[in-house]
Amino acid sequence: MATFTTPGITPEDATAVSNTLQERLSALNDLHLTLKHIHWNVVGTNFIGVHEMIDPQVELVRGYADTLAERIATFGESPRGTANAIEKDRSWDDYTLGRDSVQAHLGALDLVYVGFITSHRDAIKSVGEIDPVTEDILIGQTAELEKFHWFVRAHLENYTGQLSTAGAKSEQEAADQAR
């Protein structure tokens, strides 16, 4: 438990919010690595457009991780940004695609974003009553991540608005459907 915290937040509430933020920090660090992995491994038609579309997402996600780590420190807690922290906090599967087509990676990334955004929204609900400042940070991050998710989905959508990944339950299934 923190020995100090931000004014107006009890040490118990600071620990609760910090624990939520730590899981999100690990998720952001993992998302950053996943996006960079995709950036390095995407091939085929539209390679350069998608390769270059991913870089701003990587940079934004890295910045979001820094914001959450600093928020944890503001509460008097110690943010963990190691690979071991990601593994410890992980409730999701590791990204499975290696070198693959643009469509396959975008199909898999669609599901990554679905899971990530859903978890970020859960965190918003978790901290909202305790700390509206942290809630606001998470809301802002979610809005931008939803925009990036839209960018990904625009590549997977047909003229009727149907996603090629509709109904997929795993990244591999989404990749197969998107090919």
Rank of each mutant, 00 (worst) to 15 (best):
T5C: 11
T6Q: 15
T6F: 14
T6Y: 13
T6C: 13
T10Q: 05
T10R: 08
P11H: 13
E12D: 11
D13W: 01
A16N: 10
A16F: 10
A16Q: 13
V17H: 04
T20H: 03
L21T: 00
L21H: 00
Q22P: 02
R24D: 09
R24H: 04
L25N: 02
L25C: 07
S26Q: 05
L28D: 12
L28K: 02
L28C: 00
H32Q: 13
T34M: 04
T34P: 04
L35D: 01
K36G: 07
H37C: 09
H39D: 06
N41I: 07
V42F: 01
V42C: 07
G44H: 04
G44L: 11
G44T: 13
T45S: 12
G49N: 14
H51T: 04
E52T: 08
P56V: 01
V58A: 01
V58W: 03
E59I: 06
E59H: 06
R62C: 04
R62E: 05
R62W: 08
A65Y: 00
A69F: 10
A69S: 06
A69L: 11
R71L: 04
I72M: 05
I72G: 04
I72N: 00
I72Q: 02
T74W: 12
T74P: 07
F75Y: 14
F75R: 06
G76D: 06
E77Q: 11
E77G: 09
P79C: 07
P79A: 08
T82V: 11
T82K: 12
T82Q: 06
A85R: 07
I86P: 07
I86F: 05
I86T: 14
E87T: 12
D89S: 14
R90Y: 08
S91C: 10
W92H: 07
T96S: 14
G98H: 03
S101K: 11
V102S: 06
V102P: 03
Q103C: 04
Q103A: 10
H105S: 04
H105R: 00
L106N: 05
L106C: 09
V112P: 00
V114W: 09
G115E: 08
G115Y: 02
G115T: 01
I117K: 09
T118V: 10
H120S: 12
D122S: 15
A123V: 01
I124V: 14
K125E: 12
V127S: 02
G128K: 01
G128E: 08
E129C: 06
I130P: 03
I130R: 07
P132L: 15
T134V: 10
T134S: 12
D136H: 07
I137L: 15
I139H: 07
T142F: 00
T142V: 08
T142H: 01
A143H: 08
E144T: 15
E144V: 15
L145R: 03
F148N: 08
W150D: 11
W150P: 02
W150F: 13
V152Q: 03
R153E: 14
R153A: 13
A154Q: 15
Q162T: 12
S164M: 11
S164N: 13
A166P: 04
K169T: 14
E171Q: 13
E171V: 02
A174Q: 04
A174W: 03
A174D: 09
A175V: 02
A175G: 02
A175E: 05
Q177D: 05
R179I: 14
R179F: 05
